[in-house]
């Protein structure tokens, strides 16, 4: 096996984690990773020697994600995106989640795709602002405001969830 393929293989766990944070549902997330890998292999020659495989692959995957989000929106099928985190979805059967995990994953899905990607890229995947801005193809200032708004929005959603939960407890 050549070095390039070995390098790509070793990035799969991270790609899966990023995809899971973007799409939540396991099979959909792995489909996105598979699309990313297929495209990467077709374009193996475009991968500059010396360029970090992680950055290259994340860029490919991010483009696939954003393109498709736009297409889905254009087709008027945005309804598939969870609009209300309260009743958004049944938890994936293949995953044992704590309430805290479920709540934060629900909230993450409810913020805009652009903010979600920016926040996860930096807070989970550990990219620097410069790297993340490069991968997402936006100026550093835009990236920073997406991160700040994303965190703000996430906090608001989590607060709403816990408020609803306490109301339910009071009603009992």
């Amino acid at each position: 096996m050549d070095d390039k393929k070995a390098a790509i293989l070793s990035e799969i766990p991270r790609l899966r984690r990023y995809a899971r944070s973007l799409l939540r549902e396991r099979d959909s997330a792995d489909d996105l990773v598979q699309d990313c890998l297929e495209r990467a292999l077709v374009r193996l020659d475009n991968w500059q020697t010396g360029e970090s495989p992680r950055r290259w692959l994340f860029t490919i995957m991010h483009h696939l994600f954003i393109d498709q989000m736009r297409k889905v929106n254009r087709r008027g099928e945005a309804a598939m995106l969870p609009l209300d985190t309260g009743e958004a979805q049944a938890a994936p059967a293949d995953q044992v989640e704590t309430i805290a995990s479920r709540e934060i994953m629900d909230a993450l899905q409810a913020i805009s795709p652009d903010r979600r990607a920016a926040l996860v890229m930096v807070a989970i995947e550990g990219f620097s602002y410069a790297e993340a801005a490069n991968i997402l193809g936006v100026p550093a200032g835009t990236l920073m405001s997406r991160i700040a708004r994303g965190r703000e929005e996430l906090r608001g959603l989590l607060d709403d969830t816990s408020r609803r939960r306490s109301i339910r407890i009071v009603e009992k």
Binding site: L9, P13, V33
Partner: peptide, 24 residues
């Protein structure tokens, strides 16, 4: 909380279909 919710993904075995794509 976000990191904890996603931490498990890194430990999951990589699905065969993804390895197969890379290995051709």
């Amino acid at each position: 909380a976000m990191r904890a919710a996603l931490a498990g993904v890194m430990d999951e075995p990589v699905p065969a279909r993804l390895r197969q794509v890379v290995l051709g």
